[in-house]
Design a protein around this nucleic acid. Structure first.
Lengths: 197, 197
DNA sequence: AAATGTGAAGTTGTTCACAGCT
DNA sequence: AGCTGTGAACAACTTCACATTT
């Protein structure tokens, strides 16, 4: 569930300090949620704190890590090396959470980009082979809107099961494929909607 | 509400074609939602379609545009010119939805960035003045995690009411300020969580 | 006949209140 | 006494079923 990574991030610094235990109230405050919600979330994982005391920091950290499957490094590929794609390639946050962008794909792999790229860049014709060879299950899509559905079809075809899409279009995928949309303009729209004076 | 911009995007191409009218079923399919949900959403806006026929495309487009307040160009500023900040600066999607990034701010405004920037870049000391002078109400924050809360405090201080935050930290703002978080790692995390075999 | 608008039912997620450990 | 775990109340959102209009 989407709040777990937040809890994990709040827990990390405490883990390094010698903090043994934390109450739901304190952690909830740090994470910006209600204590009861935090407890419900953790209870759902079968996590057990100690009544009258709180949760063991290290133990809790470990349990959430397990639940998220973040113990192993999860491979991802990125399709579309425009401005946004390039920025995401060098975004440190992904690896901090246990993801590794193995490679990038673009229709113009050799195009001059004014920045040194730290990952291999392939043409779209090599997609299928790469995905199968590395059993890639997740992809980040940052191609132009017109190209997005085509790319997604290819990915699905190759066996990719999770797609994080940044193109501002409604995409269609089979039921067994999970599609997660990030639409930057819509995020701004939401703000805008709530602050009109 | 967050689905309205999707409807708008689906409607736009129909508007240009001479399509007079569209049924909730057709539009819902294009937008990837259930027809009943679409109708509820539109009914909530007080929009009226014609029974037996559908909705008038142009009229609907206009009503949603009004509701979103997208008729005027809404000014935004961007704080933090790292990789992601730069990418967002040249992201065309914002202006397509009626937002204009007026300027960018950074602690090192003069830093060499290997890309031509089309907006003025100022130092943080000029933030307050600029925000007041242009009555900016929205800001996009793409600074490093450590700096985020400080920057947000400054923004709130200056009177900014809506903040779109990309830093992976839990930020605290007064109740009258709307904070919208985009955490790229969490989006991937969600995918990952649902596709484990 | 076709398609909307909407009350009612269903579903999901959040908060409360408090019993029960330590 | 302090703090967790959880059933029950509550709230928000989604879907259904169908009466109603063109």
């Amino acid at each position: 569930m989407y709040r777990l990574s937040t809890y994990l991030r709040c827990l990390a610094p405490l883990c390094e300090q010698a903090t043994q235990t934390i109450s739901s109230e304190a952690l909830a405050k740090a994470a910006g949620v209600k204590p009861t919600q935090l407890r419900k979330d953790l209870a759902y994982l079968g996590t057990f704190g100690t009544r009258g005391l709180g949760y063991d920091v290290k133990d809790l950290y470990q349990q959430i890590t397990n639940e998220l499957g973040a113990s192993r490094l999860r491979p991802v590929i990125l399709i579309g090396l425009g401005n946004l794609g390039l920025a995401l390639l060098s975004y440190r946050g992904f690896e901090k959470e246990g993801f590794e962008i193995l490679a990038a794909f673009d229709i113009e792999p050799g195009r001059r980009r004014n920045k040194e790229i730290k990952r291999p860049v392939y043409g779209m014709n090599q997609l299928a082979e790469f995905v199968r060879a590395h059993s890639v299950k997740m992809a980040i899509v940052t191609v132009p809107a017109e190209a997005a559905q085509g790319v997604v079809n290819q990915l699905v075809e190759c066996g990719v099961l999770g797609i994080l899409n940044f193109s501002p279009v409604v995409l269609h995928v089979p039921k067994n494929v999970m599609l997660n949309n990030v639409n930057l303009a819509i995020e701004l729209e939401n703000l805008s909607y709530f602050i009109r004076e």
